[in-house]
Amino acid sequence: AEKTGIVNVSSSLNVREGASTSSKVIGSLSGNTKVTIVGEEGAFYKIEYKGSHGYVAKEYIKDIKDE
């Protein structure tokens, strides 16, 4: 049951290796980017990222929809 969301930041949002603010940053997404959410862990969504997965803070994702 995948969902999509939109990155809701003015600059960019860090994509992390794990569901923690201390996890390594593996990339970033600019505002209004559409993401595919494959799961959630605590305050983070697990998303599809560059052929693999990454984690982003839930508070910066809006317009969550079921695909």
Rank of each mutant, 00 (worst) to 15 (best):
E2S: 11
G54Q: 01
S22D: 14
Y49L: 03
S12K: 12
V25F: 06
A43G: 15
G5V: 04
K65T: 15
A57M: 15
E41W: 08
E41A: 08
K50C: 08
K34F: 10
S20N: 12
K46Y: 08
K24I: 07
S10L: 10
A1L: 13
K24T: 08
I26S: 02
N32Y: 09
L29H: 01
I37D: 00
V9L: 08
D66N: 10
A57S: 13
A19C: 04
Y45H: 03
G54L: 02
G27D: 02
V38D: 02
Y45D: 01
G39V: 03
A19L: 04
K3A: 06
K62Y: 13
K62S: 11
E59I: 15
G5N: 03
N32T: 06
G39E: 05
K58S: 05
S20W: 08
V7G: 03
K50V: 08
S30D: 11
S11D: 15
S22A: 12
S12E: 14
I6K: 07
V9S: 09
S23L: 03
Y45S: 01
I61T: 02
S10V: 12
G54I: 01
T36H: 12
K65E: 13
Y60N: 12
E40S: 07
E41P: 01
G27E: 01
I37F: 01
T36P: 03
T33Y: 07
A19D: 02
A19P: 10
S23D: 06
V9W: 04
K46H: 05
Y55D: 00
T36C: 07
D66Y: 07
Y45L: 06
K24D: 06
G39T: 04
L29T: 01
S23Y: 05
G5I: 04
E67L: 09
E40I: 07
A57E: 15
E67I: 12
T33W: 07
V56L: 04
V7N: 02
E59S: 10
V35A: 02
V7Y: 01
H53R: 05
S28M: 14
G31H: 12
I64T: 08
V25A: 05
T33I: 10
L13I: 12
T4V: 11
E40W: 07
K46P: 00
L29M: 05
N14M: 15
S52P: 01
G42W: 04
I26D: 00
K50Q: 14
L29G: 00
V25G: 03
A1K: 06
K58T: 04
K34A: 07
T36E: 05
S11Q: 15
A43F: 11
Y55V: 00
G54R: 02
D66F: 07
I6N: 04
S52R: 15
V38M: 08
V25S: 06
D63E: 15
S28A: 13
G51N: 11
E41M: 11
T33Q: 09
T4L: 09
Y45M: 02
H53E: 07
S12R: 15
L29I: 11
E40K: 04
K46G: 02
E17L: 11
K50H: 10
H53A: 13
A43I: 09
S30K: 15
K65R: 13
K62C: 08
S12M: 12
S23R: 04
G27Q: 02
G5E: 02
K24F: 06
Y45K: 01
G39K: 04
T33H: 09
K34M: 09
L13Y: 03
V15H: 00
A43N: 14
E41Y: 09
T33G: 04
K58W: 03
E59A: 10
I64Y: 09
E40L: 05
A19E: 02
K62Q: 12
S10P: 08
G5R: 04
S30Y: 15
K58D: 01
S28E: 12
S11A: 09
E40F: 06
S12H: 15
D63M: 14
A1C: 07
Y60L: 07
V7W: 01
K62I: 15
I26P: 00
R16N: 10
T33C: 06
I37Y: 01
T4F: 07
V25R: 05
Y55K: 00
G51W: 08
S12L: 11
T4S: 12
I61R: 01
F44D: 03
T4H: 10
V15D: 00
I37C: 02
I26M: 06
K46T: 04
N32L: 11
S22N: 11
G39L: 04
V35W: 02
K3G: 05
I47C: 01
L29S: 01
T33S: 10
I47P: 00
A1T: 09
V35G: 00
V25H: 04
G39A: 08
G18A: 12
L13A: 15
E17T: 06
S52E: 10
N14Y: 14
D63W: 09
E2R: 07
E67G: 10
R16V: 07
V38R: 05
V7S: 04
N32P: 05
N8Y: 06
A19I: 06
I61G: 01
G5A: 05
E48M: 13
S20K: 07
N32S: 08
S22M: 13
K34N: 05
Y55P: 00
G18P: 01
D66R: 04
E40T: 08
G5W: 03
H53Q: 07
V56K: 00
T4E: 11
S22T: 12
T36L: 09
V38Q: 07
E17H: 09
I6T: 08
K50R: 11
N8T: 13
Y60C: 06
N8D: 09
K24Y: 05
V25L: 06
A43Q: 12
K50Y: 14
R16L: 15
R16T: 13
S22V: 11
K46I: 14
A19Q: 03
T4C: 06
T36G: 05
T4K: 08
G42F: 06
E48Y: 14
I6F: 06
S12V: 14
Y45P: 00
N14T: 13
S20H: 11
S20T: 13
G5T: 04
S12G: 11
Y45F: 10
K62M: 15
N32E: 11
E17K: 08
Y60H: 13
S23K: 04
K24Q: 11
S11Y: 10
I47L: 02
S10Q: 15
V35H: 01
T21A: 13
Y60R: 05
S30Q: 12
K58G: 02
E59T: 08
N8H: 13
G51Y: 08
I61E: 01
G27Y: 05
E17F: 09
N8I: 11
N32A: 10
K46M: 10
I64K: 05
S30N: 14
V9I: 12
K3D: 03
I37K: 01
G51H: 09
S20P: 02
D63I: 13
Y45I: 03
S20D: 10
S12T: 11
E67S: 10
T36A: 08
V15T: 01
I61Q: 01
G51K: 09
N14L: 11
I26Y: 02
G51T: 08
V35L: 05
E17N: 10
V56G: 01
E41S: 09
A57V: 14
D63L: 14
E17Q: 11
F44T: 03
G27N: 02
S52L: 12
